[in-house]
Design a protein around this nucleic acid. Sequence first.
DNA 1: ATAAACTGTATAGCAACTATAGAGTCAATC
DNA 2: GATTGACTCTATAGTTGCTATACAGTTTAT
Lengths: 136, 136
Amino acid sequence: MMKIGELSKVVGCSVQTIRHYEKEQLIASAERSEGNFRLYDEAAVEQLLFIKHCRSLDLSLPEIRQLLALNRSPGAQCDDVNRMMDRHIEQVEARIQELTKLNKQLRMLRRSCSNRRTVEQCGILRNLSATPVSSG
Amino acid sequence: MMKIGELSKVVGCSVQTIRHYEKEQLIASAERSEGNFRLYDEAAVEQLLFIKHCRSLDLSLPEIRQLLALNRSPGAQCDDVNRMMDRHIEQVEARIQELTKLNKQLRMLRRSCSNRRTVEQCGILRNLSATPVSSG
DNA sequence: ATAAACTGTATAGCAACTATAGAGTCAATC
DNA sequence: GATTGACTCTATAGTTGCTATACAGTTTAT
């Protein structure tokens, strides 16, 4: 059994994050030592790694909670998992599209000013004051 | 002179947002009527549109505050504006790269499970329990 | 006079942590 | 046995850019 500091090093996330996950019910309340310190076993390590992996894929804490729940009922159909992943992929792709469009607008705006001008002549500021650039 | 509700309709942002911008010092404290209502003129409309345009480009409120300050000193060099834009563009492009990588991983993961399996057989959950997918 | 619509301030909530304060616990050293 | 240092505990505030709510006051229309 290890204390929270060791667990934090093993899985590579901060002590506060672990306590946060406990409060958010992503991991069960840990056993406590006589002195009220949290105690963890190998199962806790695995679960935290699972969560960490999900987070690296930008899954939200509620989504992860749902996955963990599904994981606990192995006989259930996994359609829910698939639906969640599909929705998540859609969101990521939508965000990429948004940012790509944004990037074009920013580059266009940036081209409207070279250095060494005064603010008064600055094409960027002038353009920002005008009507928003069209999306084309 | 118009009240905050009218301004909100004219520029297309919520009343709370306008009050929020005032608190954050993006716009000056508005004049008040006898009954303590905020009163705005055309200049306020223009400034809010400027802010709205910047926000549509995902500039942060501190960045916008800085641009507004520069706008007020028209003789200054606009290098700062250019630097800010460059940094911002870099950030957006970095985020696009991150999300693109993420998207690949998610799609790979999604392919590991088709519908109608049980959770126990679900490739997604199995993969999430394993070591994080490599970036390649 | 009254009701509806608007405005005011203050406060909490979102997401997923991070940082801080102040107190208690534990192991090692003097 | 006292002290030091490293660790842990809880509770709370801060991050970002709003949004939503509660409750009170103002204005406008009927």
